[in-house]
Design a protein around this nucleic acid. Structure first.
Lengths: 134, 134
DNA sequence: CTGCATCCCCGCCGATACTG
DNA sequence: CAGTATCGGCGGGGATGCAG
């Protein structure tokens, strides 16, 4: 995940806003990886309005494979963003929901979406201009 | 607030906060991809305090390869986050700096860092607990 | 209905060598 | 100093099939 190039002696750190972020076991990487995944943020948004069942999520996000749906949910559950509750019905049903941590994170995701929508015009413009210059 | 809208010809869209996000050419993906990359956010942070030369960035981030340094800078430049200025000295020197768009984005990154630092304890706790349960 | 297992492709990223 | 070029590993993620 986060490979260390330096030795134990040369402990690489980065200072930002007075905080020391060690390259190994960097707190930010834990979060970045969750944002960077193809489906993670979308999953957080999907659960924004309340708990949802597995099949409901499939319907909500039609173009996700079963494999990635399961894996994304597991990853987010592992890091404490979402909770999983199994109901012993027949056939069984499983409900996923945002934990307090997940809801806290949702705020960031929403800001990210807002910023994206607001600036994606400028981004695309810069992109075409750059490509044209080349 | 988060609902799937109908589709006409396989045109998948997702509605969030009243905004329609088409799956193809999604504005959020442009931003997400920049966050998700291994070095992108770090580069933004590195330029937070002002312009920096190529070699200065190398020293600041020791464990980045020359290849990825160049590529990351190019990508961010292409999307308009950073600017590049060449000084005709001998040998030549190049300075990179955040554009207004980049500085606007920097705000988000900082919030991300703050959130990470504040909650990474909870995340790691959830992670070990999940692994223990397994 | 809710998963896990398997196969496989492809793009990220690192290592290394070469240039103006 | 500031790049470019090439090779190769590795892991993300899609498609499909099987199971409880």
């Amino acid at each position: 995940m986060n490979k260390m190039a330096g030795k134990a002696e040369g402990e690489q750190v980065i200072v930002f806003a007075g905080m020391v972020l060690k390259r190994q076991d960097c707190p930010v990487r834990d979060v970045i990886d969750n944002i960077g995944g193809k489906w993670n943020t979308l999953m957080i948004l999907a659960l924004a309005d309340g708990p949802m069942r597995f099949s409901a999520l499939r319907r909500l996000i039609p173009d996700i494979s079963q494999r990635m749906l399961t894996q994304t949910l597991r990853d987010l559950q592992r890091d404490g963003y979402i909770g999983r509750e199994v109901f012993p019905t027949q056939p069984p049903s499983v409900e996923y929901s945002l934990t307090p941590l997940g809801q806290s994170f949702l705020v960031l995701v929403k800001q990210l979406v807002d910023w994206s929508v607001k600036h994606h015009e400028a981004i695309r413009a810069a992109r075409t201009e750059y490509d044209a210059a080349a």
